[in-house]
Amino acid sequence: MAFPLFLEKIEKLFGRTDNSRSVVKNRLQLVLMHDRADIPAPMMELMRAELLAVLSKYVEIDQQQLEVNLERADGTIALIANIPIMRVRTVD
């Protein structure tokens, strides 16, 4: 028991950043980034439809399985699209 406590103290002394304060600050900053970048549902739907239109020119897509989502990973917000391709169209 005593040793980890001691370690914790040392970590604090050297300013290691995995204390709960910096953890919560990072989590909060991320979640706020997401909140502030919130794309309204109608806009998301429009984006999805336009993406589909463009991609459909080149590949045949399983429209039922298409997923477009705003996700956060590794400190950034990303638009993640999961587009199952059924067949590549042959170029005329």
Partner: peptide, 16 residues
């Protein structure tokens, strides 16, 4: 708690 880095400080909150 703020002193022990266990809570966000006022400055943290204000910065955010």
């Amino acid at each position: 708690m703020i002193k022990n880095q266990e809570m966000m400080s006022v400055e943290d909150v204000q910065e955010i």
